[in-house]
Every structure is written in C-alpha cells, then in structure tokens.
Write a protein that binds this DNA or RNA. Structure first.
Length: 574
RNA sequence: GGCGGUGUAGCUCAGCUGGUUAGAGCGCAGAACUCAUAAUUCUGAAGUCACUGGUUCAAGUCCAGUCACCGCUACCA
C-alpha cells in the first residue's frame, strides 16, 4: 500500500496570509488529505512557518522586537488563520522553534559538502556597517551607471531598465538605514545544481509527468541552472559551526536552503512527539511513500529542482517528490493581493461576518489550477447563495421539514413496491452522479466542488419528478418511499461533503439522526442498487436547521466598497 | 532585455495528444411547480475562441509575427 506524505509550502513568518496563500497551498492539501484518509490511505500532513532570513530581521528591527518574538507573533497569527479555515496539519511547527531543525539542516550541509556538491566562492559584496549586514541587491539604492537616474535599485534601474551590478552603483546607500555601505570580501558555499542535474535530477525530472504549468517552466530552467549560494553572513538562521566551514565565523544557512528541510525536521518533531524518534524515516526514506508538495507557482523551481537536488545529493535514500500540484496565482477583484497597498481582505474581519466553510468551498470552486484566477465578491455570493444555500441547504430543509410535518420526523422505509423504480430514477435518470473524491485525488479540485453541487441537484430533480407533496394526498406509503430515498441520498451527500465542507457534513449527518463522526467512516464512493441505503428506516431525525445562510446584495456591495476604501486609505498613508 | 504564462459567451472559468452545429456555473428571458432558506425543475437567447498571416482535407487546439496583461530573471524568501 502507498502512504502519502503531504506538505504545504511553509508560509513566511513576516506578515499575514491571505486567500491567495490559502487557496494555493493549504486548502487543497487539507482537502486532499481528508479525501485520502477517508479512502483508507495513510497520510501525514506537514507544515510550519519559515522563520529565518533577512526580511524577518528587518521586520523585527522595525518593530523593535527580538527576532524570535517577532516570528512567534506571526507564527501564531498564521496558525490561527489556517485553523479558522479548518486546515488540520499533523504538525504546524516553525524552522526556528522545531528542535530537530538545526540538526537536520547542518547534516544536509555536511553531507552535501562531503559528497562534493558544494563549491566555495569568494566575492565582494556591499556591507552596511550601521545595519551590520551584507546587503541583498534589492536593499541597495544608488545612481544608475548607465543612464544616470538617481534612485536605481541594486538589481535593476527603474528608468532605463538596465540590469545592474550593485557594486557599480554611483554613491550607493543602504535602503534600510540610508548609510553608505562599503565593499567587503566574503566567502560563501554554493550548491552545485548543474552537477546534481547532470548526475540524476535532470533525468528524474524528464521522466515524470508534470502539470503543464510546471513542466514548460522547469524544463527551460534546467537547461540553464546555476550553482546557488547556500550561506549568508548574518545572525538569524541556522548557525554554521566554524569547523564545518573551514574556520569561517558568523555564517548561517541561507533561508531557502534550510526552509524545505523543515518538511523533514518537522516530520521528525511529529514522530518524536508520538514517541517514535525514528518514525520520520518510515515516511521520508520509504519507497512506498508518495511525497506531494502543495505550493504556489512562485515555489515551483524549489520543489521540482532545488529541493530534489538536495534530497538526492545527501545520498540517504530520501524519496523525491511524487507530485507537485502547483497552483497559479489568485488575484482579488482584478488586481494582485497586496497588503502594503491595501488591496486585500483582512481575514480576521472577514471571519467576523462569513462562514469559513463557505469561504473554503468558494476558494475550492475558484482555485487557480491551470491559470490565474481571482476572488470576486459577487462570485462568492453566487457560490454561497445559488450553490450552497439554494442547491444543498434548501434540499436538506425541503426534505427534512416535509418529514417533520407529515412523517413525525422519522425516516420512512422505501417500500418494496417502489424500491426498484425509485432507485432507478434516483441513481440513473436524474443526472450524472460522480464521486468528488476521485477528482480530489486527481488534483481536480474545482471539478470536485462542481460535482458535489451536481450530485445535490440530482436529488432536486428526483423530488420534482416524484412530487411527494402530491403523492402524500393519494398514497402515503409511496410518498414515504420517495422521502425515504431522499434521506438515504442526503446521507451520501453528507459523506461527499466531508473533504470540502467538514463541519457542514457533520451537521447534516446529525440532522439525519446519525451519531458519531461521518468523517471517520469509510468513503462510500458512488451509490448503486446494493449500497445506496445507508440509514435505517425508522431512524428519528435530529433537529433541522438551515445549513447555509444567504448573503444579501447590500452586504456584498458594502464589501466591494470597503475594498476600495481600504486601498484609498492605504495610498493616502504613503 | 531574456525566459515563461495568459487573452474563449455580460461575469468567473473548462476545453487532453488538431476533427461533426465551441462547453459549464453565475447572470439574463420564458414556462412549470408550490414540499422547501421566493427555494426547485424545464426551456431558451447570447461567443468572428485578442489580432494578422501560415501549415493542414480539417485549428480555439500546431507554427510565425503583432498587441495587451501577469510571473520569474538567481545572494528575494
């Protein structure tokens, strides 16, 4: 049997996450894991915050906070958001707090070096005495040597578009503190990606089938891959003991290098917490494990090329990714999500007014699977109202309230006299019933959401065709058979809802008078004549309530207005 | 500048290796029904598939060019 090791891109602990992050990497992974588990598969779901790097030190300094304090704040904030969305990791750790992280990261460095995959290079870089920092290109400002423009960035001149070498900028200054940086020599270690590509990783990539958006991009990249530096001179990061780096002091691992190792160290933290310190090996070094990375498109090179190179390079039988279902980007009402420009929806505010499960469902239904897509308030309203409230929610109440009124709130039997005809009608003639989990495990999330609604519509057609409100007046037994069949079908619906709408699924399950967690039962697939009756006749129903509230036009218009106000307010501040 | 992507009904998006009258949901129009959260069901209108040229018996689907938008461009994480 296969087991599934599922990761979501580590969110950077430097700010809040938004719908784009959630829909790109966390929500699909959660839905996927829920579907796998219901199908009886063994799955481990790993995530945590990425907590090192310069951007974090600058953010913390600006706030006057210790790095660890700053990171912890964002870690909690991000975790809260993900929890509200109902995303349930087996562990949500952090690269600066995971007890195993430094050890694993240093082991990677050490082994890669021993095995000849690291090169040492010395170069001159700009160093800011004030900030005590080697400046990344984008943190240097200065005059453009090409066109004379006064405020070019270290990587590119906004006026003439030239590609710049930060060392050649005229009178450079530090973008953080505005002091003039000086040139300093420094030595760094580089990961020899071309060598790893030629040895194994290139062939491995070529053999696999990737999503089209991954394939074209990486294939090109592979042709022209360069060695990448994996060390930096700074204080915040996984510190390299000087004996590992030929006596150099003050080196840390570059954050992109240690971050993906977090997937492994966090797995080790998880297994240690479960009393089995070596348990992570059963996942990471087991050929039967299918490693699945959920990421946004910005992370594609790291997860299809760089991290696999690292895993291969250490030579410890680590498995390489099985699938990388990368999503494209998610925009907001025609523009990019941008916290700094105020073009965003603060999620804490959002959740004061909206049901997280409805948001979950809408995000799944509009996921940027093949190309960029976007959050639109009107579309959200349509999903919430026409999709969830009208199609599913109304179906539930139309059946259950009918039973409350005319059948004492008890599931009626499907009488033998009508069984064959009704089951033929319901299962074959009222629309195509599909298994949402099949789409989910094939990474077709939008399709899965669509299928769930189509399945619900089948019952609406069935009810219209059988018209139990008429039958009730002529043949109470037959009316009971119809409603009984509907109850059975609602049971299926509750099952089908679990990966995408776990809370609503359980609520429906309880309305049907069922006890226990529907999510813990085996996945039923699609109904056939032998299997479709799940709920015993005579079962007393639970209390019936609306599953989904409708969203008013005025409310949605107010949200769109809010969005614009927020962007304006933010531009005034600048 | 280089590389990659996107451009399909009013809106949001599907369309795999080219093949009959180009699809879905929402919205819109009409009808049926009245059990239900004025919900549901049925029917319908609506697209020169960005533009130009090419390959082919046949192109939204391949090739070239043009335009628009987006991403990446390696010491950013």
């Amino acid at each position: 049997m296969n087991r599934y090791l599922v990761t979501s891109a580590l969110p950077y602990a430097n700010g809040p996450i938004h719908f784009g992050h959630v829909v790109g990497a966390y929500l699909p992974a959660d839905v996927y894991v829920r579907a796998l588990r219901r199908q009886g598969e063994d799955a481990l779901f790993i995530c945590g915050t990425d907590e090192h790097g310069v951007a974090i030190t600058i953010g913390a300094d600006k706030n006057g906070q210790e790095y660890s304090e700053y990171v912890e704040g964002w870690h909690k904030e991000i975790e809260k958001t993900l929890t509200t969305f109902g995303i349930e990791f087996d562990i949500f750790s952090g690269t600066s707090t995971c007890p195993q992280h430094a050890e694993f990261s240093l082991e990677f460095f050490k082994r890669l070096r021993e095995r000849g995959y690291l090169q040492k290079q010395t170069s001159e870089q700009l160093y800011c005495n004030q900030c005590e920092l080697f400046l990344a290109d984008r943190y240097v400002l200065g005059g453009c040597p090409e066109c004379g423009h006064e405020s070019a960035r270290g990587d590119e001149c906004p006026a003439c578009g030239s590609w710049l070498d930060p060392l050649k900028l005229v009178s450079p200054s530090c973008r953080v503190c505005t002091n003039a940086p000086e040139k300093r020599e420094t030595t760094h270690f580089f990961l020899d990606l071309p060598k790893l590509r030629d040895e194994a990783v290139g062939a491995w990539f070529g053999e696999k089938t990737w999503k089209p958006n991954v394939d074209a991009f990486v294939r090109k990249l592979l042709e022209d891959v360069h060695a990448r530096p994996i060390t930096r001179d700074m204080k915040w990061g996984v510190e390299l003991p000087s004996d590992l780096v030929d006596g150099e002091e003050g080196k840390v691992l570059y954050v992109w290098f240690d971050a993906p190792i977090g997937y492994i160290s966090m797995s080790a933290e998880w297994s240690a917490a479960n009393g089995d310190p070596d348990g992570w090996k059963d996942w990471w070094q087991n050929k039967d494990t299918r490693l699945v990375h959920f990421i946004g498109k910005d992370n594609i090179p790291f997860h299809t090329l760089v991290f696999p190179s690292m895993l291969h390079g250490v030579g410890q039988d680590y498995i390489l990714p099985w699938r990388v279902p990368a999503n494209e980007f998610y925009n907001l009402e025609g523009g990019k999500f941008s916290t700094s420009e105020g073009w965003t929806i603060p999620l804490d505010e959002f959740f004061e007014r909206y049901d997280p499960e409805v948001a979950r469902f809408h995000l799944i239904a509009s996921m940027p699977e093949t190309s960029d897509s976007e959050w639109s308030w009107k579309e959200f309203q349509a999903t919430a109202n026409a999709g969830l409230a009208d199609t599913i929610g109304n179906l539930v109440t139309r059946v259950l309230r009918f039973l409350d009124k005319h059948f004492d709130g008890v599931v009626p039997p499907v009488d033998e006299a009508h069984r064959a005809r009704l089951e033929g009608l319901l299962l074959n003639e009222c629309g195509a019933i599909g298994d949402p989990a099949e789409h989910i495990t094939a990474f077709r999330f939008r399709k899965a959401a669509e299928q769930l609604l189509l399945n619900a519509a089948v019952a609406n057609v069935f009810i219209d065709r059988t018209a139990p409100w008429k039958l009730r007046k002529t043949d109470m037994v037959e009316a009971g058979s119809v409603l009984g069949a509907c109850c059975q079908y609602l049971g299926w619906l509750a099952h089908w809802m679990t990966p995408m709408l776990p809370g609503k699924a359980q609520a429906l399950w309880e309305m049907l008078g069922q006890s226990g967690e529907v999510a813990e039962l085996p996945w039923p697939g699609t109904p056939c004549a032998e299997t479709w009756q799940l709920i015993p006749a005579g079962q007393k129903l639970g209390e019936v309530a609306g599953l989904f509230d409708k969203l008013e036009d005025a409310q949605i218009e107010a949200e769109i207005a809010n969005l614009k106000t927020r962007a304006l307010a933010s531009s005034d501040e600048l």
